[in-house]
Write a protein that binds this DNA or RNA. Structure first.
Lengths: 157, 157
DNA sequence: CTAATTTAGTTAGCCTAACTAGTGAATACT
DNA sequence: AGTATTCACTAGTTAGGCTAACTAAATTAG
């Protein structure tokens, strides 16, 4: 039940490109949710898996720093993932206190089989454009991320 | 403690534009987290606020549908937001069972004062490009969102 | 026109996943 | 050598979802 009390609301002064960008951000979190559901894990654990697949093996401390959660929470997350066969713990040969977490080959493959088509689908859009157009697109995205980064950095001032 | 066991890992076969795009998605959720922290509310409540500011007033049921959470959870969220003075409940004049939630002017302004500069910063990047380059960028983003949408739709098959 | 069903919002109680604090073992300082 | 720090983990707490059940109002059926 939505009621519009009259037209004193911020109009959409923003160009279509920016609207698409916003929509893209929404879609990407929908995609992550869907992928997590497909793998039967939660979003945090999926994020950990992505780091492990991309850059693993990682220590629990690494994962904690990357996800911005506590080491204690990572212990629990690794327990969950390990119980489902998604990751395994190995002793760190360089530090006898330490542990290294790796994604299991099976889980890596299962995740990649969903992730890679998405990655290539997005990257493939560039092939529809001429090299100089691609350069324009790249420059635009770089400029936008730069501005975003500035805003993020200045949030706590 | 990251250890690279040797170079049998998926190389970055993806072009810079796609990497920037991925970075952008990460930054945007960082921004949301920062904004939520700044307002002293959680991410769910922030998402509700954004809908209320953009399209409000909304019924609790509307909010539940938009956020993909249960109506019961919305009741609690509105309680939280209301206790902090971010929203208020009004009876729905068209349905005596119903309630309408609106963002308070104060909170609306506070949120907008962070959101608008970000929105304009991103939109403003387009001004650095010629009209035909802007058209290219728009077309690219539209194509990417389309592909993203397809992938999202086909996640549960 | 009354009775049954549906819809809206809320309340109560449960579960997941985060957090902080504290522990034992290994490593790093000096 | 002795102290301090770092690492992963455990225990206990808290936040914020969920489902189920309830009340009140609106709608539909007989």
């Amino acid at each position: 039940m939505q009621i519009d009390p009259g037209g004193e609301r911020p109009p959409a002064r923003v160009r279509p490109a920016s609207q698409h960008l916003h929509r893209l951000v929404e879609l990407s979190s929908e995609f992550e949710r869907g992928l997590a559901r497909e793998l039967g894990i939660n979003l945090t654990d999926l994020e950990a898996m992505e780091h492990l697949i991309q850059d693993g093996p990682l220590s629990p401390g690494d994962i904690a720093r990357r996800l911005g959660i506590s080491a204690a929470s990572v212990t629990i997350a690794v327990d969950r993932l390990s119980a489902m066969g998604h990751v395994s713990r190995q002793p760190n040969p360089l530090d006898r206190r330490g542990v290294l977490i790796s994604a299991t080959p099976d889980s890596r493959q299962r995740t990649m089989s969903v992730l890679m088509p998405m990655i290539f689908a997005v990257d493939g859009v560039l092939d529809e454009f001429e090299p100089e157009q691609q350069a324009t697109i790249t420059r635009y995205l770089l400029r936008v991320t730069d501005r975003y980064q500035e805003k993020v950095d200045r949030l706590g001032d």
